[in-house]
């Protein structure tokens, strides 16, 4: 049971203030790398049929490295901010490097405190608060599932 706010005032629960912080809302309202690529090497779409959130991901590679990435989609602040921050984290990385970041991110969402402190995740650490809200894990992971599919499609 999440902590309640018995006073009925307007102060949100601390774990929510930690989650809905400025950086998340900024990515939600001003998503980075939003759009499509004219000639993507891989294009995948992922949808959460339960809530309707969706992410379309376009990736272009230079050899093994991500050259460009764009996304479109719609959904909650968590799913869209996660997608936006993810695209920033991908640029210039190899598939293996991306896999490592993705694993670390999943660990953070699952509640691993070491992952939540790992500098390798950069801004993505702002999403650490979602660990405490299991029903929202699929939101945080939607873009990453799309990414995993994109990478496996490419082989």
């Amino acid at each position: 049971m999440p902590p309640s706010d018995p006073g009925g005032g307007d102060a949100p629960a601390p774990h929510l203030s930690a989650l809905y912080q400025e950086v998340i809302l900024d990515h939600y309202r001003r998503p980075r790398n939003r759009g499509t690529l004219e000639h993507p090497d891989v294009a995948v779409a992922k949808k959460n049929p339960l809530c309707g959130d969706e992410i379309h991901l376009h990736l272009a590679f230079d050899g093994d490295r991500v050259r460009e990435v764009r996304f479109t989609g719609q959904g909650c602040a968590i799913s869209q901010a996660s997608a936006s921050m993810m695209t920033q984290a991908l640029a210039g990385k190899t598939a293996a490097e991306i896999g490592a970041v993705a694993r670390r991110f999943s660990e953070m969402v699952a509640g691993d405190p070491a992952a939540a402190r790992d500098a390798a995740l950069g801004e993505l650490r702002a999403l650490a608060g979602v660990a405490k809200i299991p029903v929202r894990h699929p939101c945080a992971l939607l873009a990453w599932n799309a990414l995993a599919e994109a990478l496996s499609t490419r082989g």
């Binding site: 706010d5 629960a13 929510l16 959130d53 929202r136």
Partner: peptide
């Protein structure tokens, strides 16, 4: 969905 999470914290 964000609204529902925020409301859920207030039960």
């Amino acid at each position: 969905h964000d609204l529902a999470t925020i409301l859920d914290a207030r039960q």
